[in-house]
Write a protein that binds this DNA or RNA. Structure first.
Lengths: 103, 103
DNA sequence: CGAATACATCGAAAAGATTAGACATTTGGA
DNA sequence: TCCAAATGTCTAATCTTTTCGATGTATTCG
């Protein structure tokens, strides 16, 4: 038993914790599933296929970006988002290693 | 772009979606981190190291069990919980495969 | 410059999740 | 049977998140 972990998330888990929190919402999961391989989508495209208003989508995109699940870049008037594949791969590999080593 | 996914979670993702939703809460993350390798903990032990009341812990344990992240078994008066390592391993392997194949 | 486009943010309301006390249930033991 | 222990459930209050109209900001084009 690790009683320490029951009161606060340890430092090494903070970044991953934010990923899980970001992924723990169905709207955000659905946004992520709309991305094809290597694709970049602007906000308008995501709003167009979403059931939510633009401010709501913008809110979810912000959470995903802050959790480093998505990257974004402004090009002219548009803001493009894409999946941070490297970070997600690293994150899930870490979780996988934790499962193997400690559980 | 997969516009279909933007309106509802596809069947193959439903089970994994529930896992992410269950893991998307810091209290539940902390509960999970208290488990040592192969360990079984009863509710009282989890409550003892938690900052929450027993009903609150019970609530979170229920969510984790329904998402199949935890298994449980009643032994006498106690209910023991343990981590569903096989399912979690399978889940994260699936996500990892998805990242490799489709993103 | 002025208009139009794309997006973010603000702010208040609504929806949803969480929490803990009180109560209920199950079990084992005296 | 009666009691205590361990846990689940109910409920209402609270807290947090989500939502969207309105407004603000940056950028491009005429």
């Amino acid at each position: 038993m690790n009683p320490d972990y029951s009161r606060s998330i340890p430092q090494v888990w903070r970044r991953m914790s934010r990923v899980f929190t970001a992924l723990g919402d169905e709207h955000r999961q659905r946004i992520l599933l709309t991305f094809d391989r290597g694709e970049r989508l602007n906000v308008g495209q995501i709003v167009a296929v979403s059931t939510l208003s633009r401010p709501a989508v913008s809110h979810h995109l912000k959470i995903l970006r802050e959790a480093e699940v998505l990257c974004s870049e402004k090009v002219g008037k548009e803001v493009f988002f894409w999946i941070n594949k490297d970070f997600l791969t690293e994150t899930f590999d870490n979780v996988r290693d934790y499962l193997d080593q400690y559980l």
